[in-house]
Design a protein around this nucleic acid. Structure first.
Length: 905
RNA sequence: GGGCGCAUAGCUCAGUUGGUUAGAGCGCUGCCCUCACAUGGCAGAGGUCAGAGGUUCAAGUCCUCUUGCGCCCACCA
């Protein structure tokens, strides 16, 4: 084993180990009634995706859970896959076409979709490869894609079921329209962004008078589609005008002045222009007051059906020109700066246009009911809990979901039209049709293509041109990936899944909708726990994103420091639900940790004498254990508990810290150093056993967080133990169990004293500049016989750890010595020739001051009757013990100070 | 307009139910290349826990308010 290099090389190990795992089928899980399942479905990354730091965090957490549960004996399944990401993917391919000077319409639908599939085959697996380099232990045999035949079938099935249940309808509504993507968007897909705009005041002349009515608008271009002006019915300023008509400037259309209670008297002028085809509020007004609907924009947001001067102008050019014209003609009033929230396309960031169009919707209220109840019943829990409120708030105020998209890449809506029958029904464009259920003659909704119109028998049917919102397939993911709608053994065994790990951004898009679909299709929650991790931000607090150029590329980090280091650092940075702030440098902590482990193992395996140790993994002979042996086992036991509980509670940072503290502080800093001494003292066999056991256990505890280095090292030490080859993967090793037999408070307390003595001596040597190569004798004095015995038992250890000559316990005290008092034990280093008395005097007097101050504090508390009468006994006892100890330490330290001062005279 | 989160060492952050002297990493200072590791070891400096009030024997931790940052939701055109 001496061939191990002094520095860990993660790259070689990680690539090799991952291949071995995957080839051996270690990630795979199949139904097994004898074992309990544990299931996670991956939030499917977009096929267009490349691994970013958010994926890295998200998937590291999932992998930690899966690996832990797998080691704990659960049948752990992690289902991977990708999302077809309708708009995003279409945009990518359209951009590619644009470089060739082509548009999708040049190709036609079929050829275009074919191109997208080709693109998907070529690039769509990039993200999955990258997830592998992250160490993700997914069952790759089960990789699914939202447009797989199986999942597409699930989509059609749900659509038809919703339709048959009266939960899907088609109608004319104002929806969010992205003029660039040229498609409808759901409300969630058009987030509002605070924008600095202008509020334009425009004067509308009143018919038959010289007066005018002033309205305020942020989108003056829509005035070309105005069909009324609305005021509040009780607004004194305008009461007389209600029922009269205004003349729409520039267009010269005669529009009524109407009264409606929804008008806010406080805002603007208190009079509002009504544009039913271009604003959701106005749309409602328009229907309520039976106004005309003027659609004045094309689908790419150019003006249409307007006076020639504005025809074909882009909406923003039209705005500028309108303002100029209004001003010239005296219709423009004040122009105020105005901050408002404007919807933007979540795919291309274009300002969305509220647009009246014919779309498909899902009625959400009925679906939301069980999804609300399950959370209120505590059967579905959010971690951290605060997201419960966010979820419920959205769920309880849910709006219908616009699911049709005017793009080509996606699941085509399984609805067919018989134009013959439809023509009898009139035009869909009639806004009064809005909200009417489908199921009208001439509309056939079906899982499979119908051959004839059931009403008239016509064989001429055309399928709806639109595709479904991407999330219409994602919301089925927890069961569609397991085979639904077929009743598969997988579905029966692995559903419902256990934990969903995701980011807050998609609680509404995805999490909430999955719960609804879970109940609708499976009558059961799709998962019981939702862990919401934080958003990864840079050190200035900005969200990391490619467009901001502030992102840390996880692949870059893997290249530089390795996957384990990346994972370790990500996890330590993520306190439950807190946002994660990262800088490049932080990853060196993870790298150093892996390297530390590597070297601790290197030390261990390089010890001679393993040939005498049979079965190091067999039970330890406890009679032979030294103080340090018992101590490290006790510490290990505590660490097992801490790490296990932390992972159970989704406190991954605490799990990481717990194992780090054990391995670095307890194991490397103390136990390994002590082991060197013990080995030299013919206690080699027991020491090697304890070393082996502690490291073996700790590696297993660390494995979910740092899978590669732990596998590598675990196998190395496994060779020492002659571990059977078939057990040679830590992935399937048993998760460490706590053993109360290892709890040893006596050893922990004695070790604590020993450590305090060692640190005190080192501190004295350091502060008093005792030369490194000198080995003065060490004197320990204590009135406590037990402590004295304990100290003498550790004589050789103390000598080695403190670089002392001889160690004298309760022997004659040296006349002139540097002194410290720890746990009631006087720790003395003779001054003769070594120590500068003046320095020691300063040091001691500082120490006296410090002790006196602490004592004063403790005594003040004890002098307080309220404290002594009300504090619980253990706290009171603690304070008293502290008082005694401080008094003792102070007395002894003062005595030495006096000695030194006497010497100085 | 509602709701949420954050504010602790120079920096980035832990601190789970209130309880002895508030921790870690990085950075900084001093000493050490000691035969696992300088990606390391030992020792050390550094904090009125954002501010004000309150509850309590006891508050970083609970309550109220204030300030500053960040986020989410909502049809003020």
């Amino acid at each position: 084993m001496s061939e191990l290099s002094a520095q860990y090389n993660p790259k070689e190990v990680e690539e090799r180990r991952y291949k071995q795992w995957e080839a051996a089928g270690t990630f795979n899980a199949d139904p097994d009634p004898s074992r309990e399942p544990y299931t996670i479905v991956i939030p499917p990354p977009n096929v267009t995706g490349i691994l970013h730091i958010g994926h890295a965090l998200n998937n590291t957490i999932q992998d930690i859970l899966i690996r832990t549960k797998r080691m704990q004996g659960k049948n752990a399944l992690w289902v991977p896959g990708t999302d077809h990401a309708g708009i995003a993917t279409q945009n990518v391919v359209e951009k590619k076409l644009a470089k060739e000077g082509k548009k999708r319409h040049d190709l036609g639908r079929e050829a275009f979709v074919k191109q997208v599939w080709e693109w998907k085959e070529q690039y769509g697996n990039t993200i999955l490869r990258q997830l592998r380099s992250l160490g993700s232990s997914c069952d790759w045999r089960r990789t699914r894609f939202t447009m797989d035949e199986g999942l597409s079938h699930a989509v059609r099935k749900v659509f038809v079921k919703l339709h048959d249940d009266g939960l899907i309808y088609r109608g004319n509504y104002i929806i969010n329209w992205c003029p660039r993507c040229q498609t409808a968007l759901s409300d969630e897909e058009a987030p509002r962004v605070q924008t600095q705009g202008k509020l334009f005041h425009i004067r509308y002349p009143i018919e038959g008078s010289d007066a005018h009515l002033e309205v305020a608008t942020t989108r003056p271009e829509t005035m070309l589609g105005d069909s009324a002006i609305a005021v509040h019915p009780e607004d004194e300023r305008y009461k007389d005008l209600i029922g009269k008509y205004a003349i729409l400037p520039l267009v010269k259309r005669r529009i009524p002045i109407i009264a409606d209670e929804d008008v806010d008297r406080e805002f603007g002028t208190g009079a509002v222009k009504v544009t039913p085809a271009h604003d959701p509020v106005d749309f409602v007004l328009g229907r309520r007051h039976k106004l005309d609907f003027y659609n004045v924009m094309t689908d790419d947001a150019h003006m249409t059906a307007v006076p020639a001067a504005y025809d074909k102008l882009d909406r923003f050019d039209a705005r500028s020109k309108l303002i100029r014209d209004l001003e010239e003609q005296g219709f423009l009033g004040a122009v105020d700066e105005h901050v408002h929230n404007v919807g933007h396309c979540y795919r291309c960031n274009t300002v969305v246009e509220p647009r009246l169009s014919l779309q498909w919707f899902v009625r959400m209220k009925p679906l939301a009911e069980p999804a609300i109840q399950v959370v209120k019943d505590g059967k579905l829990k959010f971690y951290p809990d605060r997201w419960t409120k966010v979820y419920l708030n959205w769920m309880e105020n849910i709006e219908d979901w616009c699911i049709s998209r005017q793009i080509w890449w996606g699941h085509r809506i399984p609805a067919w039209y018989c134009d013959k029958c439809l023509n009898l029904r009139g035009q869909w464009a009639d806004p009064t049709l809005a909200g009417k259920p489908t199921g009208l003659p001439g509309i056939i909704v079906s899982e499979v293509q119908p051959s004839n119109c059931p009403t008239c028998g016509s064989g001429v049917l055309r399928q709806d041109e639109d595709v479904l919102d991407t999330w219409f397939s994602s919301w089925l993911w927890p069961f569609s990936t397991l085979g639904w709608p077929a009743k598969t053994p997988d579905l029966d065994y692995f559903y419902p899944t256990n934990t969903l790990v995701t980011a807050q951004e998609i609680i509404f898009f995805w999490v909430a909708r999955m719960v609804m679909a879970g109940f609708y299709c499976m009558k059961e929650t799709p998962f019981t726990d939702v862990y919401i991790h934080g958003t990864v931000r840079d050190i200035t607090g900005k969200k990391m994103s490619k467009s901001l150029g502030n992102s840390i590329d996880p692949l870059d980090i893997i290249e530089k420091v390795g996957t384990d280091a990346l994972r370790y650092t990500l996890v330590t940075a993520t306190a439950i639900g807190q946002d994660v702030f990262l800088s490049d440098e932080r990853f060196t902590v993870g790298r150093n940790f892996a390297n530390k482990l590597w070297n601790a193992t290197r030390f261990m395996v390089s010890q001679p004498g393993w040939q005498f140790v049979k079965n190091p993994h067999s039970a330890l002979n406890r009679d032979r254990l030294s103080l340090a042996d018992r101590w490290i086992l006790s510490r290990l036991n505590k660490t097992i508990i801490r790490v296990t509980c932390a992972i159970d509670d989704y406190q991954f940072n605490d799990a990481a810290n717990g194992i780090y503290d054990f391995l670095w502080r307890d194991f490397c800093d103390w136990y390994v150093e002590i082991a060197k001494v013990q080995i030299s003292q013919e206690k080699a066999e027991t020491t090697l056993r304890v070393l082996w056991h502690a490291l073996d256990t700790a590696l297993r505890l660390l494995h979910p967080i740092m899978p590669f280095v732990t596998e590598e090292l675990w196998q190395r030490i496994g060779e020492l133990a002659g571990r059977p080859a078939e057990k040679q993967t830590i992935m399937r090793a048993a998760w460490p169990k706590q053993d109360s037999y290892d709890d040893d408070p006596v050893a922990e307390s004695e070790m604590d004293t020993l450590q305090a003595i060692v640190s005190a001596v080192r501190a004295m040597r350091s502060e008093l500049h005792v030369p490194a190569d000198s080995r003065p004798d060490l004197f320990l004095a204590t009135p406590d016989a037990q402590a004295a015995t304990a100290a003498s038992n550790q004589e050789s250890l103390l000598r080695a750890l403190t670089q002392s000559g001889k160690v004298h316990v309760d022997a004659q005290r040296p006349k002139d010595a540097a002194a410290a008092v720890v746990h009631g034990i006087e720790v003395l280093l003779p001054l003769a020739g070594l120590v500068d008395a003046a320095k020691e005097r300063v040091r001691l007097s500082q120490r006296v001051d410090q002790l006196a101050k602490q004592l004063a504090g403790t005594e003040a508390r004890l002098a307080n009757n309220e404290f002594t009468s009300k504090a619980p006994p253990e706290i009171l006892e603690g304070a008293k013990a502290q008082q005694r100890e401080l008094q003792d330490a102070l007395k002894k330290t003062r005595a030495y100070l006096a000695t030194i001062e006497a010497m100085a005279k």
